[in-house]
């Protein structure tokens, strides 16, 4: 970690070699095109280099910290190209993209949970937007998310 904070090129290369693929997977699952995912991965590693001094291991692992950066950068990319995405225009599931990583586990959830978690985590919808999109109360959206995430832990721990 010290070497990373000193911006040592070899330490960064090791970090890239270990974590670029899982971060790229999440970015691609959000953005859906390889070209955009590649551009965002570049932005993500630039942010990691610029902000690594701010990383605090008390607040979670380095991978989780990088995962947040990857997800928020990819969602910002979506927001920059369009303002709202109607539910009806959400892309179809693509096994070549969606059958990996966390998405693979989310696909094991029941249909309602899967839809809401996808909107929340991969599309960056707010609870209010999800409630309006699927015509249920915000409270029910919250409950569904919490139940789904709890299920997620159970599935992951059985893997």
């Amino acid at each position: 970690m010290t070497l990373l904070k000193q911006k040592n090129s070899i330490a960064f290369e090791s970090l890239y070699d270990k974590y670029a693929a899982p971060l790229y997977t999440v970015i691609l699952q959000i953005l859906r095109t390889k070209e955009e995912a590649e551009n965002v991965l570049k932005k993500v590693f630039t942010t990691i280099r610029n902000k690594v001094g701010e990383y605090d291991s008390e607040k979670g692992s380095i991978f989780i910290w990088m995962l947040h950066i990857a997800r928020t950068t990819a969602l910002a990319e979506i927001k920059s190209r369009n303002h709202t995405v109607p539910l009806s225009s959400l892309p179809e599931e693509d096994p070549a993209i969606d059958n990996f990583g966390l998405k693979k586990i989310i696909n094991c959830l029941v249909e309602d949970q899967k839809k809401i978690i996808n909107l929340y985590y991969y599309k960056g919808f707010t609870i209010k937007q999800i409630a309006e999109s699927v015509s249920i109360s915000e409270n029910l959206v919250r409950t569904t998310i919490n139940t789904a995430l709890s299920e997620l832990t159970t599935i992951l721990s059985n893997k």
Binding site: A20, A21, F63, L67, I97, G101
Partner: peptide
Amino acid sequence: FELSLEHQLMKEPLTPPSYLKEKIF
């Protein structure tokens, strides 16, 4: 949870193209 999530995400991830690493660095 962090560890199990990391483990799951590291399992057979999609690989970015090899030229990207050089471009990024």
